[in-house]
Structure formats: C-alpha cells, structure tokens
Computed example of a mutant assay.
Amino acid sequence: MTSLPLPDSALPPIVAPEEWAAAHEAMLVEEKAFTRARDALAARRRRMPMTPVETDYRFVGPEGEVGLLDLFAGRRQLVVYGFFYQSDVDGWPEKGCPGCSYLADHVPYLDHLRAWDTNFVMASPTDQEKIVDLRRRSGWDHVPWYTLVGEAFSHDFGVAEMFGLNVFLRDDHDRVFRTYFVNGRGVESVLPTLGMLDITPLGRQETWEDTPEGRPQLPPYRAQRRGEYP
C-alpha cells in the first residue's frame, strides 16, 4: 500500500523524553483499567449460562455430510464462524464478504487452539465446490469450511444475513450446548492486525475513527486483499 500524505501539522507533538514518559504514564492508568475491565468481561462470559442444542443440524464437508457434534472433532469446545458467502454477496462466487475474508486471513495455526481442546470451523450456505475453490485461492486450506444444509442453522444462530461467531460446548454425554454469540465489531477480538494498528499513532486510518486532524482516513476494508489472491 502506498503511504498517504502526512503533513508535519498532522504529526504528534514533539516533546522531551521526560514529558513523553509522563504522558505515557498517565495514559497507562487508563490502559491498565481497560485491561482489568476486559478480564472482568471474559470472566463474565465464563459464567454465562448455556442452552441445549436440540436440532440435528447438518453440514457438508470434503468427506460428505456430518452433524454439529462431528464438527467438534472429539474436542470439548467448538467455535463456528458463519462466513457470509452466498449469491447476494458482491462479487460472488469469486469473492466472499470482505469482513469475513479479512477474518479468515487471520485464522491462526489451528493446532494451537486445538491444544486447548477447542476446534474452529467456518460454515456457509454455498456448495463445497465453490468453497473449496475460494479457500484454495485465498490460502485458507488449513481452515475447515463446511456447507450448511438448509437454512435452520443460519436462522437459529444469528448468521442468516450477517457473519457471526457462535461457541458451543460438548458434555461427557455428547450433548451440545450454545454458550456464546457475537457479530459485527464484536469479532475484532480475534483480529490481531487491528490490535496492532490500535497502538500506532495513525491507528486504523479509517473514516469512523476519532483521529487528529490531517491524519490519513479512508473507508474501511480498503486494506483487505479480497479477490486479489495469486
């Protein structure tokens, strides 16, 4: 990406090291409070109740049709990302939802997650042939991506017309429970690029941000490589 113009007037003020250290120390008070608040929110999530999943939702993967329980792959926890990839997405089938594509680019080496008895998969209403093609072109071969059978899962779990993360827990009797759901900007917690940008003086450089005058601001998603794969 080409750097945007950045006039001197838009740069942070220049101060002596002692003044910078004082400003940094003052900012850290709020940052540490935010960290504690984030930990408290995570603790509250862990204390959320759960609700049983009674429907036998079905999915199709590379090896055929499976049920929701199969997506756990023998693990205790399951995170299912509803990837918005269907005919009313701009650029379909060559492209998926830009935000979903951005998230898929960030899915890590999944063995680290699986070491904590947790599996991650993506699911979309599109057939496997198109999913496999987009996954291959996008470099997401390490991410399990299933086709939804019917519309029940999408409607029941909040991803019929939008992306979203659902979390499920399996007990010792193979009963499945829904424990958590988030969509919209709530999925940012799993996108490390945004966290890194948030600690820089230019931030995410997007129009919605509260940014000092003169600093770069462009529409969201411009940095995504959606549809621009080798």
Results as ranks from 00 to 15, higher is better:
T126G: 09
G195M: 13
L194S: 05
E161W: 13
M122E: 05
A123W: 06
W145V: 02
D171M: 00
V187M: 13
P192V: 09
R170T: 00
E151Y: 11
A115C: 04
D133N: 06
G186R: 05
W145S: 00
V176W: 08
E129M: 04
D174Q: 06
A115R: 04
N119E: 10
R175A: 11
T147W: 12
D127M: 08
F181E: 09
S124C: 14
L165E: 12
R175K: 04
T126P: 01
H155K: 15
D156F: 11
G158F: 11
Y146D: 02
G164H: 02
V143W: 04
H173K: 08
T193K: 03
T126Q: 12
G158K: 03
R137D: 11
V132Y: 02
Q128P: 00
L148D: 01
D133F: 10
G186K: 10
D156Q: 05
P144G: 00
S189R: 06
N119F: 05
V190T: 01
T193V: 13
V182N: 03
F177A: 05
W116F: 15
F168A: 10
M196G: 00
G195W: 13
G195Y: 10
V187C: 05
E161N: 14
H142T: 12
S189A: 15
I131T: 01
T193D: 14
V143L: 14
E188N: 11
Y180S: 09
V121L: 11
W145G: 00
M122W: 10
T193L: 15
P125V: 06
M162Y: 14
S189Q: 09
V149S: 05
L165N: 04
P144M: 15
M122V: 13
F163H: 10
T179Y: 05
T193F: 15
V190K: 04
R178P: 00
A160D: 04
L134E: 08
V167Y: 08
S124L: 11
F168D: 10
F153A: 12
M162L: 15
L148F: 08
Q128L: 15
S124V: 14
T179P: 00
N183K: 09
D117N: 14
F163I: 06
H155Y: 12
V132T: 03
L169M: 12
Q128T: 09
D171C: 00
F177L: 10
V159R: 01
F181R: 02
D141T: 08
L169R: 02
G164R: 04
T147M: 08
F153E: 09
L194N: 03
P192M: 12
M196F: 06
M196E: 12
F168V: 06
